[in-house]
Amino acid sequence: MKEKTMAQVDLLNNSTIYLVKDGKLITYELPEYGETRVITLGGKVDRLETTTKTKI
C-alpha cells in the first residue's frame, strides 16, 4: 500500500507552476514575460527551461 501525501495549492495564483517530482511538491514562479518548457525524461519531469523576454 502506498503512502498518501497531500499538499494545498493556491488555485487563484496564475503566476506559479506546481510540479510533483519524487513525492515532493516543487513551486516555480513564472517570468512576467517569456516561455517556460517542461522537459521530461523517461516519462518524468527532468527540468524546466525558461526563456525570458523584455517588453519594450
Rank of each mutant, 00 (worst) to 15 (best):
K2I: 12
K2P: 12
K2A: 12
E3L: 15
E3A: 13
E3F: 08
E3N: 12
K4R: 14
K4P: 12
T5R: 13
T5D: 06
T5K: 15
T5Q: 14
M6Y: 04
A7D: 02
A7Q: 06
A7N: 05
Q8L: 13
Q8V: 11
Q8R: 08
V9F: 01
V9N: 00
V9L: 05
V9D: 00
D10M: 04
D10Y: 01
D10F: 08
D10K: 08
D10W: 02
L11K: 03
L11W: 01
L11Y: 05
N13E: 10
N13M: 09
N14V: 13
N14P: 11
N14L: 15
N14H: 08
T16N: 02
T16Q: 06
T16C: 04
I17P: 05
I17T: 07
Y18Q: 04
Y18L: 02
Y18H: 11
L19K: 06
L19P: 01
L19S: 09
L19M: 07
L19T: 01
K21T: 00
K21S: 04
D22Y: 00
D22K: 03
G23N: 07
K24L: 05
K24F: 00
L25S: 11
L25K: 12
I26C: 14
I26D: 06
I26Q: 14
I26R: 10
T27S: 13
Y28C: 10
Y28G: 00
E29R: 15
E29H: 10
E29A: 13
E29N: 10
E29V: 15
E29G: 15
L30V: 04
L30E: 05
L30G: 07
P31H: 06
P31I: 13
P31K: 06
E32N: 14
E32H: 12
Y33Q: 11
Y33R: 04
G34R: 03
G34D: 03
G34I: 05
E35T: 04
E35I: 10
E35C: 06
T36F: 09
T36M: 14
T36Y: 07
T36P: 07
R37K: 15
R37Y: 06
R37G: 09
V38D: 11
V38T: 13
V38Q: 10
I39V: 15
I39P: 11
I39N: 12
I39E: 07
I39T: 08
T40S: 12
T40L: 10
L41E: 13
L41N: 14
L41M: 15
L41H: 10
L41I: 14
G42F: 01
G42W: 00
G42Q: 01
G42S: 03
G42Y: 03
G42D: 02
G43D: 01
G43P: 01
G43L: 00
G43H: 01
K44P: 02
V45R: 03
V45H: 01
V45S: 10
D46H: 08
D46A: 07
R47A: 09
R47W: 03
L48R: 00
L48N: 02
L48F: 05
E49R: 05
E49N: 03
E49H: 05
T50R: 08
T51L: 14
T51Q: 11
T51M: 11
T51G: 11
T52Y: 06
T52L: 14
T52E: 13
T52N: 13
T52Q: 09
K53D: 09
K53N: 09
K53M: 12
K53H: 08
T54N: 09
K55N: 12
K55Q: 02
K55R: 08
K55G: 11
I56D: 15
I56V: 11
